[in-house]
Design a protein around this nucleic acid. Sequence first.
DNA 1: TATAGAGGTTCCAGCGGGTGGAAGGTCAAT
DNA 2: ATTGACCTTCCACCCGCTGGAACCTCTATA
Lengths: 141, 141
Amino acid sequence: MNIGQASERTKLPPKTIRYYEEIALVAPERGPNGYRRYSDKDVHRLRFLQRARGLGFTIEECRLLLSLYEDQHRASSDVKALATDKIQEIDRKIKELNSLKKTLAALAQNCHGDDKPDCPIIDDLAGMADVPVSFAQKSAK
Amino acid sequence: MNIGQASERTKLPPKTIRYYEEIALVAPERGPNGYRRYSDKDVHRLRFLQRARGLGFTIEECRLLLSLYEDQHRASSDVKALATDKIQEIDRKIKELNSLKKTLAALAQNCHGDDKPDCPIIDDLAGMADVPVSFAQKSAK
DNA sequence: TATAGAGGTTCCAGCGGGTGGAAGGTCAAT
DNA sequence: ATTGACCTTCCACCCGCTGGAACCTCTATA
C-alpha cells in the first residue's frame, strides 16, 4: 500500500512516516514509480512506534524496544526495566509540575485581577514580592 | 558589569543571556572593547526572565509579561489571566502524565521481568496484547 | 616585556521530533 | 486532454538553548 493508506492505518501523518524512514526506523520497498510500498509488517512496525511514542518513549527508546521486540531471545526484564525507568521519569515530571502549579496558584490567588495596576505576580517575577511565596526556582530542564 | 558577572547574578548561563539578546529580550550596552555591559536594570530583566521561565512561561509569554511589567497602566487581570491559563495547561499535562503512568504501570505489573522472552509490554506495543489494558492512546502533543 | 590564562567576541551547527511549503512526477476518472 | 488527488524530493523552520571553533582582550606574574 502507499503512504496515504499506511498513514490512515497507523494514524501517523505521512510526513512523520517519511521521517521515520529517514532515521531508519522503517524501510519500505519502492514501486517502479518510486512510490513507497508498505507491507503489513511495515504498518505493524509503524503502529508499534505510534504506541510507544504515545507512551512517551523517545525515538531512541523506541528503536531499542523495536530491537528487543525482534529479538526472540531478549529478556522481558530488559523491557520491564525500560518501562519502570519511564514511570519514574513520569513521576518526576508530575512532581515538578505540581510544585510549579502550587507556586502559580498561590500567586494567582493573591492577585485581585482587576483593572488596577498592582499585581503580585508581576511583583514576584520582578523580585519585589510582598507575598509569602518562596522562589528558589530550579530551572525546568 | 560583564556577562560573566551578570551570569552569576541571574544564574543564567552566558550563552542563554546572549541568546536572550539575540531575540531582543534584553539589550545591554557595549563597552569600547566590544564587551557587553549589563546595568542593574538589565540584570533585573534577566532575573525576571529567569523566574518566569522557571515557572514554565514560554519565551513569548515572557516577552508579554515583560511588556505588562513595564506598562504602568496594565490591568492586573491581564497577568492573572496568563497565570490561570498556565495553571490549566499544567493541569492538562499532569492529567496526561498520570494516564500515561497508569498505562505503563499496568503493563509493567503484568510483565514478570525474568529472562524468558514473554513480555506483555512488547506484546501490547505490537498490538497483540492479552492483558486487559485499553490503548486508545492519543498522541502526546 | 613576554606570556599564560581567564574571560570576552562571533559564527555555525546540532539537539528532538517533527512540520510546512515549493516544485515537480504519477495516477484514475471524467 | 485535463483535472485533482496523491506521491516524490528538498530545504527551511519551530523551541530554547548548547557546544565548539577561531579569534580578541584583559590582568597577573616571571
